[in-house]
Write a protein that binds this DNA or RNA. Sequence first.
DNA 1: AGATTATCTGTAGAGTTGTTCACACGTTAA
DNA 2: TTAACGTGTGAACAACTCTACAGATAATCT
Lengths: 139, 139
Amino acid sequence: MTQIPPLAPSGPECSLRLVDADKVEAVRSRMPGDSDVADLAVIFGLLSDPGRVRILIALLEGEMCVCDLAATTGLSESGVSHALRLLRGPRVVQVRRSGRMAYYSLADSHVRMLLDLGLTHVGHTGKDRLRAVETAQPG
Amino acid sequence: MTQIPPLAPSGPECSLRLVDADKVEAVRSRMPGDSDVADLAVIFGLLSDPGRVRILIALLEGEMCVCDLAATTGLSESGVSHALRLLRGPRVVQVRRSGRMAYYSLADSHVRMLLDLGLTHVGHTGKDRLRAVETAQPG
DNA sequence: AGATTATCTGTAGAGTTGTTCACACGTTAA
DNA sequence: TTAACGTGTGAACAACTCTACAGATAATCT
């Protein structure tokens, strides 16, 4: 089930050096499969752009239409549309249409938690993300 | 403290359309600052590469040296070194040196939680995963 | 000393990503 | 119907990122 296959490709002339072979084997056996790792990287990649981060943070407060998201985030409406397209694919956001409006909202609670955790890491207040509670960080 | 400034740049010839101006204002006022958003995007960006994800998942089990990380992840040792350099900057990992060995470990518990949350999001197999986040919140 | 080992760094090329522009699509109003 | 509106899409271009290779650095050993 594990990939990253070439640990011991053929014989003793393997060029890989190992210090703790047991640990390497143990960790390799518990490593998620390639597709899970790739999917994980894709999700994080979607959160790696400031514009998309702002869009998602805005959506934490509830659904919004494209033009309001543009005004909120400072992106162009086309830029917001492109970003939302990327986020729609892996179902990070979902859309509700009403007439010519498109109202977007978060489709996955994990993304909400990822954003909260990330903001905590970055030091933007404690868990209380969107409120100004100075939790000064030493060093 | 909020940026994304050009909501109402000067006058009525503003080209931005608003549907729910109150909501836009409310969300804008709670939006983290540019540097927090940028830092957040950087952190997620570091997690957006399969190689780095594998390195960090390996480090969930404890510290490892570069060559063992290479054997575990399938990356070249140079590639691991490059990846760790990126992760060292924002202090996602830390290094302990002993002789000519360099032992890397996770430097931030948030990253541990981000990885676990992400794996839950993609894998959803709900299994034993990686015994990560044992320091999670009490029941 | 020189050789070997483990890690680190610089660079170049291929590949990817974000932004902007222009226009297309479907909906609503006149 | 035509026009305006909100949104979606494709293409082009700059900017960025990943990977591999070569070499550098520092510690260890003979």
